[in-house]
Simulated scan of single mutants.
Amino acid sequence: MSLVWLFPAGLAALAALLLPVLIHLARRDEQRLIDFAALRWLSARPRPRRRIRFDDWPLLLVRLLLLALLAVLLARPALQGVEDDAPRVAVAPGVDIAAARGATGSGDARWLWLAPGFPAVDAGAAPPHMQPLASLLRELDATLPAGAPLTVVVPSVLDGLDAQLPRLSRAVRWQVVAAAPPAAAATAAPPPRLHIRHDPAGATALPWLRAVGQAWNAATPADIGGDEQPFADDAGVRVWLSARPVPPAVQAWARAGGRLLVDARTPLPADTQRLPVWHDDSGAPVIEQVAGGGGGWLRWAAPLQPATLPVLLDAGFPQHLRDVLQAPPAPTRALAAAMAPGRGAAAWPQPGYEPVPWLAAGIALLFLLERWLASARRRRGRP
């Protein structure tokens, strides 16, 4: 265990220790010389000695100590190496506490909810079921000391997962308790809207794309205009059916994360590479991913006509095109037995313990003692 100062400049306030000393020197009891008649005619005159003398040593010491503690509080002392290694049991919302206690048998551990803020289990009602489980596990692992054992109690089916298995800095006891899974919330995203800009040759593909828009959402028709007309809406998918180059503003929008689908006749930069992302039943490419041009460019591999793209006649064409343009959300539900956290993440440094409550209590007690000693001095008739 070591002591560190988080704000060492606060120790400069120790210079204020001179104030009580100067005040006590300036306000010490005065001594008056009284001439006695029997000694008046003596020729010898004693020379008075001048020396530094303090009155009320207890009051002076209390004031000095009070100022010293204030300076220490400003400097923010912290103790490194003071770690609470008590075992913790984190319970996922939705798990019955009685069943969790019976399954773990950790009566002397600290029980907390696997929820934002990690409230104590005995503090109140259980949090709601939907919680970002994976990120909360990583946060809890980062806040606990390296030597604190951790047990996680989860239901048999987990929600709130992300794309990867959690990796923590410690070995975790993963306890699965049978529980009814909560109702899954609807996560389907609304279908995207098509914003189409075309030249005269590209207008021949409009009937097929209008049909796709009707299949997706009949209440929201596609936004269609000539290639000289700028795109007016940043939402949805932009479709460029023109032999002209893609405007720079549209390229910048695609680099910023927008979804852009260009015609097979659209010129591409010389350094681009094309990777097929959709093949028809015969293996011919339908849509290609354009790499090197920046952003999320997609490109039709052939003109949008049944003679060159027979997949246009398939009944599943609208749904397959939507899956390419709008990837379905990643699953967030899985069996808990297969989601036990791995080990290998770096341990997070723990902050030092700041004894602020103890310093504040000491300052308050010394202030009360100083007031009591000062009032006692006045009761004795001293300034």
Score class of each variant (00 low, 15 high):
15 A>K: 00
15 A>N: 00
23 I>K: 00
24 H>W: 05
35 D>L: 10
38 A>N: 09
40 R>I: 07
43 S>C: 07
44 A>F: 14
61 L>R: 09
65 L>M: 15
69 L>M: 15
73 L>F: 11
76 R>W: 14
84 D>V: 04
89 V>H: 01
95 V>Q: 06
102 G>Q: 11
110 R>N: 04
124 G>K: 03
130 M>N: 10
139 E>T: 13
143 T>K: 10
145 P>N: 05
148 A>P: 05
149 P>T: 06
155 P>M: 03
159 D>Y: 03
173 R>N: 15
174 W>R: 11
184 A>I: 10
188 A>Q: 11
192 P>C: 07
207 P>H: 05
208 W>A: 11
209 L>F: 01
209 L>D: 00
215 A>N: 05
216 W>Y: 08
233 D>T: 11
240 W>M: 06
247 P>I: 07
256 A>T: 01
259 R>S: 11
261 L>C: 02
261 L>R: 02
263 D>F: 04
265 R>K: 06
267 P>V: 04
270 A>H: 07
293 G>I: 12
299 R>T: 05
313 L>R: 14
318 P>Q: 08
323 D>H: 14
334 A>I: 08
340 A>Q: 13
349 P>M: 07
351 P>I: 08
351 P>F: 10
352 G>W: 11
354 E>S: 06
356 V>K: 13
382 R>Q: 13
